[in-house]
Amino acid sequence: MYWNSLSEFLAMGGYGFYVWGSFGLTFAVMTIELWLLKKRQKRVMQLVKQEAI
């Protein structure tokens, strides 16, 4: 392990905002993409079921 303490890890040597901003944003956007797709999938499935009846 490279870090000595949690606060040091969070501070990222003064680059905390930029590093955590990048990582946070990347995974937030990826999660949103997944969530939107799930929603679309659900909507399509409902449509298909309606048509099948």
Partner: peptide, 11 residues
Amino acid sequence: QGEGYRIIFVH
């Protein structure tokens, strides 16, 4: 670049 370089792991 100090710790700032870690951004490249996603960039």
